[in-house]
Write a protein that binds this DNA or RNA. Structure first.
Lengths: 333, 333
DNA sequence: ATGAAGGGTGCACACGTGTGCGAAAATTTG
DNA sequence: CAAATTTTCGCACACGTGTGCACCCTTCAT
């Protein structure tokens, strides 16, 4: 059987109350008694029962984490960042996948609330404003990663997509490109719009035209990027550089370009977004605007823990991406 | 406040005992009473408190999952498989990362046990035989993925690495290669040994020599594969084909080969192991022996649930990998 | 020596759910 | 219609930990 404070109480000849206090209160109990009880607890190999503590104290020391899919390497790093912070602070991670299904996401959040998690982190929510009433009812703080809502229990950490899109496009312009395409994402939602906005802003500033035939959409994955690039290669005139919604899209674009016999970056420059490890797997290695993914997770977790422990915390944090120059971009040939 | 069975009891004018039974026992309560109580519970929006249930019934409906790193795409799919099964059956997933640190792994497993998870799944354990005494003490069933131990509480699901290594090498031989190298992994442990064994077996059967200078080691990641391939390129005579411990290693090997100006598969054939999505990102796409990763996770979870629900279950399952022909292998030029 | 003050400890209850057993109510049996 | 039987329900306790309040035992001041 498992050792409980009652067992310790019996062994020490005191009440379980005294044991409970000796192991935590520290002040109300005579030092000798406390030391004796602690020694016995140690000797018996006592481990407090988190379930009982949760029932009594309303704290489970567990965070709920909701992600769309783990097969997306972006989320993977985020989760890893969350986990590291949580583990260091003694919290557990209850992980659920929503598979981009808003209804499922909703059900998961309610399930997590029922399981009494202390707080919830949602990466790439598909639920939007429908959250707010639910969260008010749940009374559990939520940190959203890369999506934005406002409300009493809602916090967020996000990267500045407009800035990132601007940064990527400016970089291409700086290399001398004047014919720059954008491959977006059907599923990107707000983040796609924002990156696109940054792209347009950079073009406008440089006095470059925004050509509709140079703006196509993928699906945020490799296949979509490939298909989009094939369409783009038929454009006349053909762009000399492409900014892609994310790295997976860019990898697809690169595949299609190589297959069409183009030399990258000589005939075509390609820049991605995210800063995935996967971008270094391909030849040439992918130049990209990196999101601080692990830090997104870290910050989200730290934010949540601050809130839970009653410390002051900002409600919304916006991070800037950084350019990583690798090999897929160069001056127009 | 949250609705409890006491609230329902008050509203229905019965004791909380009756409510408890009406919501589960079903038999001992008069049908009309039961229906009335259920209606009230529904109306009040009652949700049972899993924490209280866990304390009372010793079941948390939660599985612990331990993985080394999520940045390894192999584990990602496994976790996803586990999560799908768990979610469908109403179980939660408590995820922890061990970062390949045996001591941390041990601490995590004990923490999970303290948190009262019903069962534990460990992917790629680094703990080996040190598990057994601990598990006996914990009395919690564990399913190991791709590692093998035996004991009263230990179950396992694994892929047949010897067979996989044999399959890969046989394939290369079948294409006409006679100079076949192996890039292993320093960190691969038993699985590396087994794949190597399959490699040697295939060579032996075909009457091909095992040359020590054609056997080098990476680290199971891209960088290690790259470095290993650079060493291999200096061998004389140079191999015409390489079997790599896993896909990441193979991707590294491919990078190094392309950089050295080799044409793949014309000058060099490369085959990997795992069947990662990432293998399709590179050009040429990677031929590989695929592990049924998601199924590994699924089976592990299903196995664990069978055990928990007292149904009969095999103790050890061994799955076979399958060859996926893509573009990185061809006859020797 | 007596009373007040104060620190140390235990009783009883709380958290929300589940269950053995006995009591009350309803039903069947003689 | 009374007795035996069955059904239906509630009391009390359990799970392991935490806490308000009262009590007891020192210790100190008068």
């Amino acid at each position: 059987m498992r050792v409980t404070i009652k067992d310790i109480a019996r062994a020490a000849g005191v009440s379980h109350t005294t044991v409970s206090r000796a192991l935590r209160d520290s002040e109300e109990i005579r030092p000798e008694t406390r030391a004796r009880i602690r020694a016995i607890a140690e000797a018996l190999g006592y481990r407090p029962n988190p379930v009982a503590r949760a029932l009594q104290g309303r704290r489970t020391q567990t965070l709920g984490v909701v992600v769309t899919r783990l097969s997306d390497p972006f989320h993977t790093e985020v989760v890893q960042g969350i986990e590291m912070v949580a583990q260091a602070r003694g919290y557990g991670i209850l992980l659920s996948l929503s598979h981009e299904d808003p209804e499922k996401e909703r059900a998961i959040v309610e399930l997590l609330a029922a399981k009494q998690v202390d707080g919830i982190i949602v990466a790439a929510s598909r639920l939007g404003s429908r959250y707010l009433p639910m969260l008010e009812a749940l009374q559990i703080p939520i940190v959203l990663i890369n999506s934005h809502q406002t409300g009493p229990y809602v916090y967020s950490v996000a990267t500045d997509n407009v800035h990132g899109g601007y940064l990527a496009t400016r970089y291409l312009i700086g290399l001398g490109h004047r014919a720059i395409a954008y491959i977006g994402s059907r599923r990107g939602g707000r983040s796609n719009q924002d990156r696109y906005r940054g792209y347009r802003q950079a073009l406008r500033e440089a006095g470059l035209p925004l050509r509709p035939e140079w703006v196509v959409k993928g699906d945020g994955r490799v296949e979509g990027g490939e298909a989009a690039m094939r369409r783009l290669l038929e454009a006349d005139p053909r762009p000399t550089a492409v900014f892609c919604y994310n790295d997976l899209t860019a990898i697809g674009a690169l595949k299609a370009a190589l297959r069409a016999g183009l030399r990258v970056p000589l005939d075509l420059s390609i820049i991605g977004f995210d800063g995935l490890e996967e971008g270094t797997y391909v030849t040439p290695m992918l130049t990209t605007v990196a999101q601080p993914r692990r830090q997104l997770g870290r910050l989200a977790a730290e934010m949540l823990l601050e809130i839970l422990e009653g410390r002051p915390s900002p409600k919304h944090i916006l991070l800037q991406g950084t350019l990583i120059e690798r090999e897929s971009c160069g001056p127009p040939g």
